[in-house]
């Protein structure tokens, strides 16, 4: 999204495609009808596009996106005078694990990772994202296995602290 705001059309298209899949599932589960979900999805994408200046790059992208998706969903219920069967305030429903795909959460992860020191960042990426074993990572970076473990542990801890700081 940060690159999209700078005017990078290719990055933007890739972002919207990922969001499209995610939001289609999100709306489909709540509305049940594929045609409604597709309409709402398109409306949401247009709203995000038209109002993308309201995204503050210092805040989590997923929260911004979900706020728009949720607003459009409530708006849809209001228009069609259908009562929401589920309490919309319940965050578990909005951020249900089955559709909160790793793909779009990764956008925030990448941003946070960017603030870690280069060495720690590479370690975490290798072990936690690419799934290398501790031994493989140790071999790749030329350090001992326990150094890998300590590095990853410290890195995750500092990521946690950063997330905690960002919480509004």
């Amino acid at each position: 999204m940060v690159r999209s705001l700078a005017g990078d059309g290719a990055a933007y298209a890739a972002l919207l495609r990922r969001l499209g899949d995610h939001l289609r599932a999100y709306y489909l589960r709540r509305l049940g009808r594929a045609a409604d979900a597709e309409d709402l999805l398109q409306e949401t994408l247009i709203a995000m596009h038209a109002r993308r200046s309201t995204y503050d790059p210092s805040r989590p992208f997923t929260a911004w996106m979900h706020a728009i998706a949720r607003y459009k969903l409530i708006d849809f219920y209001r228009r069609t005078r259908r009562r929401a069967e589920e309490p919309l305030d319940d965050p578990d429903i909005l951020f249900g694990s089955e559709d909160a795909s790793a793909a779009e959460a990764q956008l925030d992860v990448e941003r946070l990772l960017g603030r870690l020191p280069e060495k720690t960042r590479r370690l975490i990426r290798d072990v936690k994202i690419e799934g290398l074993s501790t031994a493989e990572a140790a071999a790749r970076h030329g350090i001992s296995e326990s150094a890998v473990k300590v590095g990853v542990h410290r890195g995750l801890k500092s990521l946690g602290a950063k997330l905690e700081d960002e919480r509004p």
């Binding site: 290719a10 919207l16 499209g20």
Partner: peptide, 25 residues
């Protein structure tokens, strides 16, 4: 309109958004 076409349309000729666009407007 297909969603994929919509996305392509939105992504072409993407104007950059200046920082602090909200406060400026």
């Amino acid at each position: 309109m297909k969603t994929d076409d919509l996305i392509s349309a939105l992504a072409t000729e993407l104007d950059p958004v200046p920082p602090r666009a909200v406060a400026n407007r």
